[in-house]
Amino acid sequence: MPIFVVSADAYPIGRRIAEKTAAALGYRYIDREILEGIAAKHDIPEERLNRLLDAATPPAQIFKKNWRRQLALIQEATLDKLLADHVVCHGLAAHLYVLGVSHAIRVRIISTTDKAAGASQTDAKQLEQLCRQWSLTAFDMDQTDPAQYDTVIRLAETDETEAVRTLVAMSADSRFRANTFSVNCLKDLELSSRVRSQLLKDYTNIKVEAHKGTIIVRTRVSRRNRNKVIEDIKIKAGNIEGVSFVEVHAASGLLARL
């Protein structure tokens, strides 16, 4: 059965709908509660993780030292939870890293409208701009782009119960059934995030791709350290559970792209 990856422009509203959907379907609900566990395990203030996920925090506050690794840890923990079927996930930016998984239903909930009470239109625009900026910087994706989602629910057109009903109905759609291919994709994502957060302890610029147990690591190094870094990454990644083969692509030079 499917998993839901819910993203909303307003956290409390997204949370309400996601939680109700989970309850209606009897799915497990995961949200920022899991941050506590991560914070305890890696000795990071939970407050810091919360702020990291909040688009409304000023960028200077978010992109401080270690933000990549902290995000990667959230990513790792979330993907681990998603491996179990029957999950509704919200508030953990999962829509930015659960990609290419056919049984993950990607949902965007848009609550700010032109005539939204309280917030003026410019505020809404500004918030959207912040959201876009945040997702582009953190994950190189535009989370406000509706093409990214399987369904976009505008609360200006429906109410919350109706939204929940829509999502519940979608869960029965056979298109979103988990299958060997999609489960493998999710496992690959989980493994790669695990490897990445591990490597981010020592390196800042790391991209990881996984295909079954084969890992491809991309990084940027100075020419001088190249061989040493590659060796080091191979050993570190090779020791991680589930990894059977490591390939490292190390780019050198100012203009090299990952």
Partner: peptide, 27 residues
């Protein structure tokens, strides 16, 4: 030629499962 699209189409048409090549006989 596995892709999210193709997988969803196949499942929509009622496939039991969808496996991407290459796979092992064990899978």
């Amino acid at each position: 030629y596995a892709s999210v699209d193709l997988a969803r189409r196949a499942l929509d048409k009622g496939a039991f499962d969808f496996i991407a090549k290459p796979f092992k006989p064990g899978d």
